[in-house]
Design a protein around this nucleic acid. Structure first.
Lengths: 210, 210
DNA sequence: AAAAAAATCATGGTATATCGGGATTGTTCG
DNA sequence: CGAACAATCCCGATATACCATGATTTTTTT
């Protein structure tokens, strides 16, 4: 496909300076047709009526999670190759993104060569991870092979705990018994094998479960 | 000074794509002499032997805090104007940066016009905040006008707590009495007026006190 | 060297969280 | 329709955190 027509590439990031940087980095080395978006929803609209070969998708967007956008993109346009872009690299986030159909994950501190080569390899159907991401995947300890699933109520309570509320305050706010709140706490601690709520909140935050 | 010689501008950011983006955004509109760095220490070396009119300084750098670098820069070269660049805007961080001698703070989601106008105004001696930063300064609730100061030992203990350790575990690790650890906890809670350690860890994290 | 701040340890008490077992309703889904 | 799951509630016990107050020693600052 690279011989017949120009490759179409999209960048979705809500930081204009990152957008501009990626555009300039890529254009300086390759001749692609580049579209850029600052909103995930704007890109979803675009892809409904246009073909895009590859998209560099920021994971943290103002109008939603990149994880969800990735899923939507692959649904609307399965051929489009998605590469996640982010400045953090948490093992589980990367897994989640790949499970949602992405072909790669690069960190914002990757240099230009890395970015270019990742794009090229992804276009050739490979799964690409930037250097540092690879290291993290190898070295970061595996908390649990599968992240525990969390119910609606548990999520709600966990959020409230993370804000600093005590069980009693939460019970009052949610109109349930103190005992119920404590049961949820106990279940959460067990699910995550955490020693206490501080550790639990940390794990949940790192994995964006709240 | 703008008439005689080119204005010298530096960008310090450990994300090549942000670096490139800023450079390209600025160069497309103004004719400055631009130097870029991915390490704060590299820039400190540079400024020891060179004059720089203005520096765009990322607050989160791999080799140290932008807050500290700002202080060092103003010490080595008081004339150099420092503008903080970051993707988060916590009230207290902005205050801290300004107290360390910075002339402005812009968010990474600022658009090109905003960036350019901020740079120009800062060069004219003004204190500049990008739009969204201004809003945050106005709307974000003021936890405490001055952030409590935290001692070495307290910081150490707070970090250990944030990892999920109990007081007993911390006492053992630091070879001090359980009672001492609990005293530190109590002092920390009082200083920050926090209800419990979960809230305290949240506040400390938001303000990069660990 | 004196004053201030930081780090240490202490007593005794209250509150909250954590643990280990149940049990009862709904809801959801194969 | 049952079987899993979610959400709710309960008892009794222990562990840990939090509160009030105070004191000694070491370190830092003036």
């Amino acid at each position: 496909m690279s011989k017949e027509s120009k490759i179409t590439l999209a960048i979705v990031d809500d930081h204009p300076m990152v957008l501009e940087g990626l555009k300039s980095l890529i254009q300086s080395q390759e001749n692609y047709q580049i579209y850029s978006f600052t909103k995930g929803t704007a890109f979803l609209d675009f892809i409904t009526g246009n073909e895009v070969d590859l998209v560099l998708l920021d994971i943290v967007l103002s109008d939603g999670s990149g994880l969800d956008f990735c899923k939507s993109i692959k649904k609307l346009s399965p051929k489009t190759i998605v590469i996640g872009v982010s400045n953090q690299a948490e093992r589980s986030i990367i897994f989640q993104l790949l499970q949602n159909g992405a072909s790669g994950y690069i960190l914002k501190n990757a240099d230009s060569q890395e970015i270019i080569s990742c794009i090229k390899e992804a276009l050739n159907g490979k799964v690409v991870l930037s250097k540092e991401v690879q290291e993290i995947m190898l070295t970061q300890p595996v908390y649990s092979y599968e992240l525990p699933k969390i119910t609606k109520r548990e999520k709600q309570i966990l959020q409230s705990i993370a804000e600093g509320n005590t069980s009693a305050q939460i019970a009052e706010k949610l109109f349930i018994s103190l005992i119920t709140v404590e049961t949820h706490r106990r279940n959460l601690l067990q699910k995550f094998k955490a020693r206490n709520m501080i550790e639990l909140v940390r794990i949940a935050t790192e994995n964006r479960l709240m």
